[in-house]
Amino acid sequence: MSEVATGYNFAYLDEQSKRMIRRALLKAVAIPGFQVPFGGREMPLPHGWGTGGMQVTASVIGQQDTLKVIDQGADDTTNAVSIRRFFARTAGVATTEETAAADLIQTRHRIPETPLRNGQILIYQVPTPEPLRFIEPRDSETIKMHALREYGAMQVKLYEDVARFGHIATSYDYPVMVNRRYMMSPSPIPKFDNPKMDRMPALQLFGAGFEKRIYAVPPYTQVTSLDFDDHPFEVQSWEESCAICAAQDSFLDEVITDDAGSRMFVCSDTDYCRQRVAQQEANP
């Protein structure tokens, strides 16, 4: 489909930049959940389109790797298609839409429904890496809060939800504790995906291009969502099932189908939905 572009280094970034990012990645996996600053480079698309994730992918990817890119679970949305094509052209790597066939998966705001295996790497695009940002805007303070493990303010924020709504209303970018030490933003994934991060066999890397931070969760690392004894962490559930594949266990998107208020619910993970449909057609 797309030819390999000439005139660029493998995977676009120059080797010096890759080494700098690689050193930051090694520090990030050694201190799970800690945000390592790095010298973010300009990428040929705007901040907010996944430049952090792309810089991590460019530094990690090799010729033998197969890449999958998803945006809100879908392989066929603009952001996912553009980034997949970018690496197909600048690195000449194989790409796939199948979760199980991918070595690297760059994601914006979802974790695939198909469980990931050891050896795979999940690379998140992160807009706001600092979980405490909307509580404390000053970096000088949040850095101290992380150093002192001073996370009471986040419990207060969640408690304000309970006081106002009767339950924890935070539904995405739901804060987690990594290995009982660092509070971490899981990026704006729905809290439905939070339990998948806990002791995941795959390596999870996070890249924030705008704020120039990298952080990581090694395989089999404990990741717990914040909660209270009397208001335990809960994920979203739906009364509906997927209109295409009838899945009841996947994260569903609500799609408006006309002006009269008709709507349907479909899997957000397009690969998972397609696999289920193929399976049903094979065994009717």
Binding site: E15, L25, L26, L203
Partner: peptide, 19 residues
């Protein structure tokens, strides 16, 4: 091959450091 050999050594290091 500085580009691809360096990448392979780094991937081994990334696996080593994360596991």
């Amino acid at each position: 091959d500085a580009v691809h050999d360096g990448q392979q050594v780094f991937r081994a290091l990334l696996t080593a450091m994360s596991e």
